[in-house]
Write a protein that binds this DNA or RNA. Structure first.
Lengths: 324, 324
DNA sequence: GGAACGGTTGGGACCGTTCCCAGCCGTACC
DNA sequence: GGTACGGCTGGGAACGGTCCCAACCGTTCC
């Protein structure tokens, strides 16, 4: 239609240099007019790439799908991938059996690379992916040294923001509901709390700490535990919004007013934070942006398997609402 | 390797009749030994099929990803699709812009069919999919007549089960927190409540009804409204577990004991139901099974575009726990 | 004026399947 | 014994791209 050979069309499609501007324009308008779209299958056949990337979610479904973190992750990745015509293929690895199947699947070259979403420290998959030389990136800092790119939020700094804010609001005894200590995010947020309090010369002993697992439900237990100890506190930093919601409910049950009696800061800035009563002051992590960066990193890596390992740490931001 | 031509291998792979048992066996052992896997791209190139089906989620992300319903849906679909080597491709259509893009994408034959997950009545996508003759199935009854297959749970019967159970437990004034009335599920659960109460000769006036949107948060507002009216009730049917969780919290705040003062029944049997305090009696819908049936229906339809339209309605089941 | 060269271009092999078609072989029938 | 037939098999075109290679053209240089 453009009066040129398929070779030239191919060159235009792939932005290969060595096409005259005139021919290039000719082809482009023809494409525009016909709504032509290259055939994925034919292309894959020769390039040996699939045009799909896997979104591997290695976590109990119930957990993942009840955490808005995942929603934002998916949205960010989708946004990067869609205009490129790349498919985002869902892969769930809930238990060991599913993991084996998944690995088999990945090894057979069904996808060009893997976005690995999991926060679990003990997860063996990242290590295996690296060993198999499959292009992969992680959604959080891996445990131990592992030559793999990742993005993460600066959890230590985030916890620091929360503590600083509470101190600014005049609080002097600041407790925390920490996350699980087998996950980097859990560790870092606790460490950030400790370090910030130490810097202010305020107490930060173990009697001010209770543990949850980031998810809904665990925050209530931790809150009850803290209150049960009888140790006074007027500020509370909770390592996830979902647990903070629990904490708010338990505080209300105990006739404690937020923020008058206890000022509360969460972490994540999920939708839950705005819906909470009172609306939750929280540390925002830019999940969607992080997902975009993660996806771009993977695409880089697929394009060049020897691309350098990078880790990108995003700064958190304090969002003030009614709970402080 | 098996000493036969590629034609014969192809026949074995596709279970085409007209291969001698001997040759078939020869090929099969060769495949076993080499771990051979057919090349998707080459196959797609000639069959004009992609070996992928789209999982279209037409809903606000925050909503979908905070509802465990979606998790089960994905799990069920994955289970059907994985052993067949079919990819489940995630597609999100949150707003109008995303919907347009998505449609364009679907029209270009990137997937062989669509699993459409949405509960929204006003969603224009199902109608368009039908008009475009794209193989598609719905995860819930569509509004209006539409020649499209779907699966659903019998919501009317489910609400009936809940009411019957509450009556059995001696309750005579049974209120309800209903779902949104622009969704079939919302309408049906309300209707089931009304009809069952009418059958028992018990009151079922509008003063016993408050409305939510199925999601967390809306249940609290509805519960407050019901209590605020001063109309007495000793039983409560809530159209979703998430709203029931809210209701439990509000009842507790008002010093009402569950189940002694108010017996509560939810709907869904999500994980939330078991985590609730007290554990929630609820109407279970077999979401995972429904997802499997849905996926199989789609695969049928892809195999034969003129397959008859089917709708499969699953029976709900009452799960008794501590809240009644 | 002819050769060398660089920028463009088209031709054609190739990727790994499916599927049509022709051919082979053994059997049944006349 | 020859022929028709049916079950099974292999050959080869086709799918729609990518990419290597050769050819073409206009310039520049000797």
């Amino acid at each position: 239609m453009a009066g040129v050979s398929k070779s030239t069309v191919s060159r235009v499609l792939n932005d290969t240099p060595g096409v005259s501007p005139k021919a290039r324009q000719l082809v482009k308008t023809a494409i525009e007019q016909t709504g032509y779209q290259p055939n994925r299958a034919a292309r894959s056949l020769v390039t040996r790439a699939t045009g799909s990337i896997g979104l591997v979610v290695s976590e109990a479904h119930a957990r993942i799908f009840s955490d808005p973190f995942f929603a934002s992750m998916v949205r960010g990745a989708t946004e990067v991938v869609r205009p490129l015509g790349i498919h985002l293929v869902l892969m769930l690895a809930e238990d060991r059996r599913a993991r084996e199947q998944l690995l088999d699947y990945l090894r057979h070259g069904h996808v060009d690379g893997v976005l690995f979403i999991s926060t679990h420290a003990a997860d063996p998959l990242p290590r295996i992916l690296v060993a198999e030389r499959l292009p992969a990136v992680l959604s959080a800092r891996p445990v131990g040294r592992l030559p793999i790119s990742y993005v993460d939020v600066d959890s230590v700094a985030g916890a620091g923001l929360a503590v600083d804010h509470l101190v600014e609001r005049g609080r002097r005894r600041i407790a925390t509901i920490a996350g699980p200590q087998d996950m980097p995010a859990g560790q870092d947020r606790l460490r950030g709390w400790e370090e910030a309090l130490a810097a202010h010369g305020l107490p930060h002993g173990p009697d001010l700490v209770a543990y949850g697992d980031f998810a809904r439900g665990s925050g209530a237990r931790a809150m009850e535990e803290l209150l049960g100890r009888g140790v006074p506190f007027d500020g509370l930093f909770v390592a996830s919004d979902l647990m903070a919601l629990d904490a708010l409910a338990v505080l209300r049950e105990h006739q404690l007013r937020v923020p008058q009696d206890v000022a509360v800061v969460g972490f994540d800035d999920s939708d839950a934070a705005t819906q909470a009563r009172p609306a939750l002051t929280t540390v925002r992590q830019p999940v969607e942006e992080m997902a975009k960066a993660l996806t771009l990193t993977l695409l880089d890596r697929i394009g060049d398997p020897d691309a350098p390992i990078t880790s990108r740490i995003f700064p958190p931001k304090l969002i003030q609402r009614a709970s402080t």
